[in-house]
Write a protein that binds this DNA or RNA. Structure first.
Lengths: 245, 245
DNA sequence: CGACAACTTGACGGGCGTCAACCGGAGTGG
DNA sequence: CCACTCCGGTTGACGCCCGTCAAGTTGTCG
């Protein structure tokens, strides 16, 4: 599943899922200056308050976005996988409000912010698709709000599994039937607004569940329909119908 | 505080807070076709699954964005006040994933989506500022995940008060020292991921609080510094430094 | 084989939910 | 001018989900 030789193609693939990308625009994206890098578990891509001069595109593996409360509790507010472009804030706002941390040993591409700024300025069609991408990202954050505010531990966990399974499939990383998450239970708990102790107990309670199987850190989903029903998962917030243009 | 004669000026004012708006661009915005309307408490601007043909700009009053879980529990994921443009999704994605409901009797302007699409296509500077606005909106949603996931009822409530007080002040609706919310305790509870019973008790526990006073639905903030400390409120997620251009 | 991180388990407590009753003010209609 | 209604706020009793604390256990990597 190593695909670092693909350059920035995962970004093109993602934008194609959001709308039409001309061959010319695709070439312009792939031509962006960038450096490919393999990070180590726990590395930070950027930290709250940074003013990063570059954006980061996840090529393989997983990254998370989090904030920390005054009491020191961490809340993860989203995960990023292959094709996801992080820190567009760097281009438009110039300041990061979250920590971006990676898990496992992902490979990423770093792209100078001004190169992206130039791309946006010259190619409105790409700008539009990147904008749509940020809208989807916001939609995910709102779904997490619902997850944290109104669902119990079991549903939160199942919902997260559904989201990541489907996003991985959409990103061309295999089928939704099998997900492997390089996340510790503590990181899962930070995403779900729970403690790691309670996540552990919730995971164990899923043994009796007939819609999925767990084998270490890979989850085999045996009954997608049943799982989404249990998780109150409706994929509408992830997909987007094609725009008007 | 009635200002419906101002047309779309609140939107111009907001974009000016995010960056530079030329007089020409400002005029183009104010020239957008629109109809001003006063809504009634509880009206829906749009509902989940709609494909609205127009965007809505809040001129005065307040609107909320929510989703509903399979168990029927509502979670509000954000509030919108004067100057906030809702349903940009209609322009870019074509589909709403949330309900937008109003409280009190706000006045809004409805703008045809294709007029906004044309504006975006012709005026990249405005597009850029609207894009930044959606990034701030996303940042707020992420702050809410931290609020729901990692703060207790008291802090959640104080944090919401801080956010709305500051946003009202930023929007030119008076000082942060005094906020009037046309929200019932049930609506507050839907925003905080709590029950209205518990919100009621939490509000009462604030009587002993020295940093604010309550008089019906208006809150007088006597000590902003102290309040923000108690609420773990850092306004960075609301403001944005000017972009690079 | 020692060190360290992640996972597991148990006991206990508290914050918040649930259920249910009651209060109080604003509107409405006779 | 007074009943009636209704919505929102208030209060109490009770219980559960989940947090906290603390002690293992497992696994992995040197």
């Amino acid at each position: 599943m190593i695909r670092s030789e693909e350059g920035l193609r995962p970004l093109v693939a993602k934008l194609k899922r959001l709308g039409t990308v001309t061959a010319d625009d695709a070439a312009a994206i792939e031509r962006l200056p960038h450096t490919v890098k393999t990070l180590r578990h726990g590395d930070f891509i950027s930290k709250q308050g940074d003013e990063p001069a570059q954006c980061t595109l996840v090529l393989e593996g997983i990254a998370s976005r989090d904030r920390v409360s005054s009491t020191g509790a961490r809340q993860i507010s989203g995960f990023y996988i292959s094709g996801d472009l992080i820190d567009l804030n760097a281009v438009l706002v110039g300041c990061a409000h979250d920590n971006i941390q990676v898990f496992g040993s992902p490979t990423v591409a770093r792209i100078p912010a001004d190169a992206i700024a130039a791309l946006i300025a010259e190619r409105p069609a790409i700008a539009r698709l990147l904008w749509i991408d940020t809208l989807v990202d916001a939609s995910i954050a709102r779904e997490w709000t619902l997850n944290l505010g109104r669902r119990d531990a079991r549903m939160r966990l199942l919902h997260l599994i559904c989201e990541l399974a489907l996003r991985q499939e959409n990103a061309g990383l295999g089928s939704r039937e099998e997900v492997t998450l390089p996340l510790t239970q503590e990181q899962v708990s930070d995403a779900l607004g729970l403690t790691s102790v309670h996540v552990n107990r919730t995971i164990q309670s899923l043994r009796a569940d007939t819609s999925l199987e767990r084998d270490g850190r890979t989850i085999r989903i045996k009954n997608w329909q049943q799982l989404t029903r249990q998780a109150d998962f409706d994929d509408a917030y992830l997909r987007t119908r094609r725009g008007l243009v």
